[in-house]
Simulated scan of single mutants.
Amino acid sequence: MIKINNVTKKYKTKKGEVIGVDDVSLTIEKGEIFGIVGYSGAGKSSLLRCMNLLEMPTSGSIIINGTDLTKLSAKELRKARQKIGMIFQHFYLVSSKTIIENIIFALKAADFPKAERVKRAEELLQMVGLADKRDVYPAQLSGGQKQRVGIARALANNPDVLLCDEATSALDPSTTKSILALLKDINQKLGLTIVLITHEMEVVKEICDRMAVMQDGKIVEEGSVYDIFAAPEAELTKQFIGDILQLDIPEKLIRECQGTIVKLQFKGSKAGETVVSDMLQLHQVKGNFLHGKIEYIQEEPLGIFVLEIIGEKNEVAKAITYLQDRTGNAEVVTDGY
């Protein structure tokens, strides 16, 4: 478990003091994948670097598996860091060393027993799907393959925690999916706690269990990924989610609609029910789908649809009430009366 208690990180600049992390508290459970989302400058990378004390917090505490890292001596901190792996946006591989030599170098730095280094490096290459690249050099690898080496290197010393700082932002969408699938597989097989920093909501949706949204050094929203996607509260979170769901209706289309436009949200099993079809049979109205999408978050469906309802005012009101009762989330976008 990771407990971040009232952590603040201040930086001194020529223009004065800047607050990078502003009184942040979080609890990240053992074995979960936790995402921290925010735009550039939000403070998320500073917070991540505070987690293994690459950045010393100005105030507050970082407790990992019951140990407060901020109270350790330099020697104790070096030992504690051996159980905290880290993956970066840039791969930082040694170009003059082969792939297996890069991993052995990391094992050596972690004081891994010399006689076991080659065997351990080969196990890690097998784990990340690069056993056949054992003796090639970094320049011969794609970006995704280089990041797999970075992951293998971060796992070298059997860490309990894996910190990922924008680990997929330099990769194309297809490669990003494969890296996220690898991280999820590692999480499930090894029981690792993974903290993932990103500015891409799609990344969080893909593999995270819970998440926090950062803005100006503060946490503005926190919760399960599904709940936040289903009912975002902070304006920044709504903006992030809107970029993925993309359910904006062109103004021209709205002007041309003659009926009442309703936005529906279907959670979980509701997404598979015939709610709209039942409504059309029960009430004297016509329906016209304008937009719709079903996202799967942690394999649970979340459906959002925009529907135009046409008919007598009284019947339309009854139909909307029915939709609200069935879905629990029916919002009138424009009233046709």
Score class of each variant (00 low, 15 high):
74 A>P: 11
198 T>K: 10
6 N>D: 08
76 E>K: 10
49 R>I: 06
50 C>N: 10
223 G>F: 09
226 Y>S: 05
130 L>G: 03
213 V>R: 08
109 A>C: 15
289 F>Q: 11
75 K>C: 11
95 S>E: 10
301 P>W: 04
313 K>M: 11
331 E>R: 10
184 K>D: 12
281 Q>W: 06
307 L>E: 05
289 F>W: 07
220 V>R: 03
92 Y>I: 06
272 G>M: 05
61 S>T: 09
208 C>K: 10
239 Q>D: 11
335 D>M: 12
72 L>V: 02
314 N>T: 04
299 E>Q: 15
147 Q>M: 05
304 I>A: 09
323 L>M: 08
330 A>Y: 00
174 S>E: 14
7 V>D: 02
300 E>V: 10
195 V>K: 00
38 G>Y: 00
1 M>E: 03
270 K>V: 13
167 A>Q: 00
235 E>N: 14
23 D>K: 01
267 K>G: 02
52 N>A: 05
142 S>G: 00
50 C>E: 15
319 A>T: 02
317 A>C: 10
44 K>T: 08
250 P>T: 01
265 Q>Y: 13
123 E>D: 08
267 K>C: 06
319 A>K: 07
291 H>I: 15
34 F>T: 00
174 S>W: 12
199 H>W: 07
300 E>Q: 06
215 Q>L: 14
322 Y>L: 09
150 G>T: 09
266 F>T: 06
188 Q>G: 13
45 S>F: 02
29 E>Y: 15
166 E>R: 09
214 M>F: 05
333 V>P: 01
281 Q>P: 07
224 S>M: 12
255 R>I: 14
295 E>L: 15
329 N>S: 14
69 L>S: 05
259 G>K: 01
170 A>W: 06
240 F>K: 03
122 E>I: 12
326 R>F: 09
273 E>T: 07
9 K>C: 11
34 F>I: 03
20 G>A: 13
87 I>H: 01
121 A>H: 00
159 P>N: 07
